[in-house]
Each structure stands twice: as C-alpha cells, then as structure tokens.
Design a protein around this nucleic acid. Sequence first.
DNA 1: AATGAAAGTTGACGACTGTCAACCTCAGTT
DNA 2: AACTGAGGTTGACAGTCGTCAACTTTCATT
Lengths: 228, 228
Amino acid sequence: MNFDISKYHFRSDKLFNSVLPLYIDELQAISKVVQLKKGEELYREGSMPKAVYRVKKGKIKIQQTSADGKSRIVYIYTVGECFGFRPILCNEMHPVSALILEESEIEVYNGKGFVDIAKRSPNLSFNLVEILSFEFNVWINLIGSLSHKSTKERIALILLILNEKYRTSDIDPIITLSKADIASYSETTEETVVRVLTFFKEQGILSNEAKKVIIKNKRILEIIAEGF
Amino acid sequence: MNFDISKYHFRSDKLFNSVLPLYIDELQAISKVVQLKKGEELYREGSMPKAVYRVKKGKIKIQQTSADGKSRIVYIYTVGECFGFRPILCNEMHPVSALILEESEIEVYNGKGFVDIAKRSPNLSFNLVEILSFEFNVWINLIGSLSHKSTKERIALILLILNEKYRTSDIDPIITLSKADIASYSETTEETVVRVLTFFKEQGILSNEAKKVIIKNKRILEIIAEGF
DNA sequence: AATGAAAGTTGACGACTGTCAACCTCAGTT
DNA sequence: AACTGAGGTTGACAGTCGTCAACTTTCATT
C-alpha cells in the first residue's frame, strides 16, 4: 500500500514513441513553434479545437469554469507533455481552458493534419488509445483520492503532485504556483490554503517564503494525503 | 445555456459501428454471454483486467473504494454500453470495481483477443480513440458540475442522470436505485439524500414511495442542478 | 400471516470550512 | 526612497452537512 505518485501523472510524452520517421516528418511539416507569456490564453472552454500541442518549455494550467464563475484547475502540463488532442479526436468543443502559467514555448500541430496522420499511422493511433486509456485512469484515481477527503488531505495530495511537476533536477523542487491556483487545484479557498500551509510549516513539513513552497518532508505529506 | 444531459453519458454503444463483418465475426468467436444476479461482482479494483464487456440486459455500477473504506459510484452502465476496455488497452490494473445492480446479461469478449482485433481493424481502433476521448470529456463535465456545488445541487444532477439511465420507454422512468447508492453517486450520505428527496417531494418535484423515485418536474431539477 | 434482515427515516449535535473584511508584504516602477 | 497593486495573511463568524443513534418500513422467505 505504498503511495504511488505516478498514478496522478499523464503519459502523453509517449505520444510519438515508435512512430515511423515518415509520419514524424509529416507531423513536423504541419507544426510551428510559438512563444507565450504568463497569463496568455491558449484556448478557451467552449471554443472549437484547432490544434494539438506539445510543451517544449514552461507550464500550462488547464482549468474549467463552473456556472457560478468559479474555476477549477484540472491539470498542469509541463515539458514534454502533449495535450489538446482529445476534443479534436471526438469532434467536441474544448471542455476546458488552457492558460500559460510561466513563459512557455509550445509546438503547435494543425488539428486536421494531426487527425489525418493519426488515421494513417497505426502506431500513432495505438499510442493514442493507450494514452487516452491511461489518462482516464489518472482521472479516476485523482477524483477518487480527492473525494471524501478533508481539505488538509486534498492540499497535501496536490502539493505532492506539484512537487513532481516543479521538479527540474535532484534538488528539492520549488513550487511557485500562486496560493489562489493551489486553492483552485485542491478545490478549496485561498484562505484555507494559507491556513493549511501555515500549519504544515509549523510542523516542519515544508517552507513557505517569498511565494515559494518547498516540501521538506514528503513522507509525512504522503501519510496525510492518504488520510493517515 | 440549456441544460444538456448528453454531456454526462458515454457513447460506448458506438464501439462496433462500421467495423467490417470480418472483424465482427472474429469478435463473436472470442465472446460468450453470461448471466449475473444482483450483488455479484464482475471485477474488483486492483485486479488484472481479463475481458471487455457489453451489456445486453440489466445495469452495472462502477465504483471506487477510497483508503478509508468509503466507496463512490463513478458510473452506471446499462443496455448497449461497452466497458472494461480501458485498463486492458493501457495494461493497468482495474482502477474500479464492477457490481451487478439488477439481474444482467453480459457479452464477455476475451481481452487479449479484443486487443489483437483492435490493432488490426482500423475502424475499431478509431472508434476506440473517439469513444475514449469523449468519455474523458464526460468525466471532465461531471467533475466540473459536481465540484463547488451544494449537496442539493449534486443530488439534483445525479437524479437527472439516473432518470436517463432508467428510461425504458416514453413514460416517466422509475429510479429503483437504493438511497445508499444515490448517496454514493452524489458524494454525500444516505441521510442527506433522504432529507433532500423529502424536500424535493414536498416541492412536488418528484415522488418517492416504496423505494421508487419518479421525477415529475425535470425542468426544476435542471435549474437546481445548474445552481439557479 | 409471521419473521427477520435490509433499507429507509428522523432528530440532535457540532466540526469543518467557506465567506467577509481588514490588513500586511513585497516586487517592480517612477 | 516612496508608491502601487497584486498577492498573501489573519481573525471572526455562521451555515452546511456529516456523524451517531434510535426508530420505522419494506420485502423476501418460510
């Protein structure tokens, strides 16, 4: 019954694995690289999807706004991950919005071209099937882990997920996500996040200075996230 | 801004659409039909997936049990729907359990055989991509609709979803799901479900006699589910 | 028709956590 | 060095909803 963080991360970085060079070249031909700044919007929920994206640098938050105007972060994409293919593949509007969290560089593949190539490349097709199936599992796991949990437990879990997202080398990752965004991801309020982080800090579990959160004791967070 | 219930239902009944007769025959050859009684377990979370299923008769609830032993219904499959293919396609354990809600008849396709045929049939492959993509959207929509909502709103939404699941003809569907299951689906407790249903009944929105719930005023429920 | 178990109902109570409001901190700019 | 605005922090308060416990109803089986 060990805590397994990989249950909560997509595997979309494997999208192009073992796809024939022929198709890789075709994909190259229908793509371009764009630079985006913090706060910019890549796409908005309810809009028609136009492209598939791959993160070359930076971080993108995916969020959904409910009827009462409150938004909820559902995922954060980072280097190597691909996204935006789901609504394209089932001909639906974007159910979520994509917003740039920090200066990013993104490879943009033309949507129609991507679907066309996917239909011809068996390996790409089957990578999609695998990735989509797995992403669903990630969701089920996340939802299962977040429901029936106290805010403290939810925040602990989200911090652990963010800890992986913000990892760049072997040193302790520095989580620079705003308190409001951590709240939106943990399905709680900014005030509650501040209170819980203060509590965690008092317990020596993390440091929280100058808008930077650094996890010091991952094991205790895992125990809290699992509900003791 | 009309309420659209189709956002909350999978489209797995389209799995075999336009698949060549050749492959349909092959699928037939690796399948068998089983009869199951209420309460029986089709598979359990954490187990290795062995088959893909198609409901010929009855209803199956998919649920996930969290660390503290509380379970949550994540979906209910009914006639025509296919399920169980996701973990097979990405080589993962079942993240959820499947339990028979009422006497059911299920077509069971051997998992390995199914994957093999899927890899050879482009249409089946692409149906999978489409269905998986869409199912993800259903989830995003459901989660988005359930979070940041009061229990009353959540229960209203689940009742509307169940109303479609229990529809058999043009007359008002009779929802025979137990209060405990409605609670598990709405992420609340049985007591709260009883209280809210009593309230809805007082408002003339539904009737609730002899373990049967019948929705009388769908429009009001939709307004409540959307948070007024 | 009697029985027992499962399912459903009602009431009392209090903790959790969201809301509101005021205030503080800090980085970037003039 | 003062200014400004976004982001962060703290306190007070109240409503929702989960928990516990007792009770009633329903239904399958004999």
